[in-house]
Design a protein around this nucleic acid. Structure first.
Length: 514
RNA sequence: GGUCCGUUCGUCUAACGGUUAGGACUCAAGAUUUUCAUUCUUGCAAUAGGGGUUCGAUUCCCCUACGGACUACCA
């Protein structure tokens, strides 16, 4: 089969997109871009019960924030609803494609690959309970389908009557007996399953006239000419069903390739990463902040101060590596380097420390002026405003120490406000009886320093201390105490020069008098 | 329980039959910085266990253990 690579990301709008979901979208996108193909967004909202308002918008916005832009499906920030040259398969929301699916389900019945089933959910529950009591599991399959209320057992007349008398019926796939289904996964290789271990999945439900995932998914992938399906590992158990479905429709020849991605696991302990782990361990599990209907807020990478480029980069490395030692990749570089061959089979435990490291790397690469603008906005929320040139100089001095822009404040507060308290342990360590007079003489010396630059301060301060026979370490640390209030921060001369002569002298005198 | 998938330093991973099992994050030590951080150097640390196959197994096969997913008229 030749032709253009077409992949899709097909989430359900049942809540905010989890970072694992973003990774799946990213891998699809990278795969498509590398092969010059198309990345399609489709919304699988065939479960009216679990629909969550705002989830679809969230998905679109989250992908946009990451720079993962669908070639098809999204138009002006919304799902495309009418077919056009760019969106030939619109609508891309399955609830809007509703009329399309039933005929496919019925085609399967006509060809003997499916049947009508009339069991109510209460009856099914009862069967399950009964089986459980006997230590068994109830499976709707070849062993029961001809004993229960199905079109396989009932006469055509009876079936017709039941079909017309209500909507308590579904269409089920008639899973073949004892067939070895041979499958290939691009990441995992060959897999075989005996069809007898599988059940007769519901394909279509009359109650809401909607298909289930399995039917809608296969029909849409076929109609949308999807060539490669890259999805989460949770779908691997239904791969044989999907194979059989393609076969039953007569589409086996144009069936897409499949690749199943392993899960993202929680940083500690076992199991897959969940919203709770984020709350518990203090890192986001969602790309963007999300507020649920109860008003409960889940933090997002964007709001936590991650750069989208860093988020994408760290996500790409959770389950994939380029095979080289390069770790920092732009989205462009990722699409060049990406390959399913290098996707790891086993699940990846998420490591929040490494995530922070990625952001730090991006912060360092970022323009000082961009960082200064972001910091200025943050300062604004604190009611502080300074010329941007000043903020740029501050950023220059502290950016190496930060992981996030939001770290800037606690790393540089002393550039904006004089210390109002002094670290007592530092003070006790260096304070002597003559310290106030020493500080006064230094203030006086600095007073006459012109221009008040870092170099000038450095060149005069240290000889001055030596000439007077003072202890270098003690004096420098005391000056730092005057400027910062603690034993931290940029170089003393840097701080003095940037803060300015008057402010420097006033801080020194303030400490001298304390 | 059944079906399927998986298992290399604490974590992410490299090594696709032959390496002193490599790198990154974390942590520790030293140097630099008269602070803190940065930077640099060094260190700690792994092939789940048992059988095969092979001259040789992290790598191939089997068993066991452990982990995970699925087992809905949810996706």
């Amino acid at each position: 089969m030749t032709g253009r690579t077409r992949v899709r990301f097909a989430p359900s709008p049942t809540g905010p997109l989890h970072m694992g979901g973003v990774r799946t979208a990213l891998y699809n996108y990278l795969y498509a871009k590398q092969r010059g193909g198309d990345f399609i967004l489709r919304i699988e909202d065939t479960d009216s019960q679990r629909f969550v308002p705002g989830a679809e918008e969230y998905i679109i916005e989250a992908l946009a924030w990451c720079g993962i832009s669908p070639d098809e499906g999204v138009e002006n920030g919304k799902m495309a609803e009418t077919p056009s040259e760019k969106h030939p398969h619109a609508p891309y929301r399955q609830s809007q494609r509703k009329p399309l699916y039933r005929k496919y389900a019925e085609q399967l019945i006509e060809n003997g690959f499916a049947y009508y089933a009339f069991d109510t959910s209460e009856e099914l529950d009862a069967y399950r309970k009964e089986a459980e009591a006997g230590g068994d599991t109830f499976t709707y399959n070849y062993q029961v389908r001809e004993k229960l209320a199905t079109s396989l057992k009932l006469s055509p007349a009876e079936t017709a009557e039941r079909l017309s008398s209500g909507n308590h019926w579904v269409i089920r796939f008639k899973m073949p007996v004892d067939r070895i289904v041979k499958m290939t996964d691009l990441i995992r290789g060959d897999i075989e399953v005996n069809s007898s271990t599988l059940d007769d999945k519901v394909l279509w439900k009359a109650a809401d006239e909607l298909p289930t995932y399995h039917l809608a998914n296969i029909v849409d992938d076929h109609l949308m000419e999807i060539t490669d399906v890259i999805r989460g590992e949770e779908w691997l158990p239904s791969l044989p069903l999907h194979y059989m479905l393609y076969e039953a429709f007569g589409w086996a020849g144009s069936k897409p390739n499949f690749a199943h991605l392993s899960l993202l696991l929680k940083p500690d302990g076992k199991g897959k990463l969940s919203k709770r782990d984020g709350d518990r361990l203090g890192f986001p599990v969602f790309p963007l902040e999300w507020k649920n209907s109860e008003g409960e807020i889940s933090s997002g990478y964007r709001e936590e101060g991650y750069f989208p480029e860093a988020f994408v980069n760290l996500l790409a490395f959770l389950g994939w590596n380029p095979g080289t030692e390069k770790e920092i990749f732009t989205l462009e570089e990722l699409s060049e380097a990406f390959s399913l061959d290098r996707v790891v089979k086993s699940g990846a435990k998420f490591n929040p420390d490494k995530a922070k490291w990625f952001n730090q790397e991006y912060l360092r690469m970022r323009d000082t002026s961009a960082l200064a603008n972001e910091f200025a906005a943050l300062l604004n929320t604190k009611g502080i405003s300074r010329p941007i040139a000043y903020i740029e100089q501050v950023v220059e001095l502290i950016k190496e120490r930060a992981h996030f822009v939001k770290d800037f404040w606690e790393l540089s507060d002393y550039f904006f406000t004089a210390p109002d308290t002094y670290d007592q342990t530092v003070k006790n360590k260096f304070w002597k009886e003559e310290t106030p007079s020493v500080l006064e003489s230094i203030a006086k010396m600095l007073e006459s320093l012109e221009p008040f630059t870092k170099e000038n301060i450095e060149h005069s301060l240290s000889p001055f201390i030596k000439e007077n026979g003072w202890q270098m370490g003690a004096v420098m640390n005391t000056l730092r105490l005057a400027m910062v209030g603690a034993s931290r921060g940029a170089g003393v001369a840097d701080i003095m020069a940037l803060t300015g002569k008057q402010e420097t002298i006033s801080r020194i005198e303030k400490l001298a008098k304390s």
